[in-house]
Computed example of a mutant assay.
Amino acid sequence: MDYKMSELVAKTNVPKSTILYYIREGLLPKAIKVKSNLHKYDDEHIELIKYIKYMQEKMGSSIDEIKLALENKNDSFSGSYSMLAPLMNTLSGESTTLKHYTKSEFIEYFDIDSILLDKLINENILMPVKENDFTQKEASIINLVENFMEVGVDYTVLKEYVKHATIIAELEQKMQKDLCAAKNEDNFSTLWKIMFDTLFNAKTYIFNRATYKVLYKSLKDELVK
């Protein structure tokens, strides 16, 4: 279906100036020129604008990150790292402001027990994104384990997190492949929304609410004793 600019603005709730900016930046294809003062847009423009809005507003992706993903938007989800770059960056929890350390620098700077460090890496409780690359995030997990040890409580819950996280990650990979198989020209933004909302909204909602229900029941049982 074809749209005039005014119709595109109405359907996406994105200002004309922003749409023209997306076109200049190469995020959207140029419109087909019908007359000197009339340009034609289509459903692809609407899908892409939805995707761009979602990535900016929900995931905090930059224009450059979105552009990188869109360069390969017609490739399969599983076959293109560029397509998955914004997702991978978000999953890694990596921040451009985080300082990175080699293993020896990390041990010295944070006064880390090297034996405990190796143990947690072997247990997959510590999973640096890159080999020999550590940040404050790894230090905070080690500090948590040390606190468990200080009070004499085993960190079994963290070990169970690892076990179940691996199983869930495999299911998430299957979901990604299923979404890839369902891809067509009209559902690009919807597929991405499903993937991101599942990983970053539904997962935390279900896990945290499950914890809440168990703790609430325990508290309620104590009060009625």
Rank of each mutant, 00 (worst) to 15 (best):
Ile46Pro: 01
Val14Ser: 08
Tyr51Thr: 10
Tyr3Val: 00
Lys4Arg: 14
Lys58Thr: 08
Ile66Val: 11
Pro29Glu: 14
Leu48Tyr: 03
Glu47Gly: 03
Ser62Leu: 00
Met5Pro: 14
Tyr51Asn: 13
Asn37Gly: 12
Leu68Met: 06
Lys40Glu: 11
Gly26Glu: 04
Leu27His: 04
Ile32Gln: 11
Glu44Met: 12
Asp64Pro: 00
Tyr21Asp: 06
Lys4Ala: 08
Leu27Pro: 05
Glu47Thr: 07
Val9Cys: 11
Glu7Cys: 04
Ala10Gly: 09
Ile23Met: 12
Val14Arg: 10
Leu48Met: 15
Ala31Arg: 06
Glu7Tyr: 04
Lys30Pro: 13
Ala31Cys: 14
Ser17Met: 03
Glu25Tyr: 01
Gln56Asn: 04
Ile23Cys: 06
Asp64Cys: 00
Glu47Cys: 03
Tyr22Lys: 01
Lys53Ala: 09
Ser61Gln: 06
Pro29Ala: 15
Ile23His: 03
Val34Ala: 11
Tyr22Glu: 04
Asp42Met: 03
Ser17Gln: 08
Ala10Lys: 15
Ile32Tyr: 08
Lys58Gln: 12
Glu7Leu: 05
Leu68Pro: 00
Lys67Arg: 12
Glu47Lys: 06
Ala10Val: 07
Ile23Glu: 09
Lys11Trp: 00
Lys4Gly: 02
His39Trp: 11
Leu27Arg: 03
Glu47Val: 03
Leu8His: 05
Pro29Arg: 09
Asp64Gly: 00
Glu65Ala: 01
Ser17Trp: 02
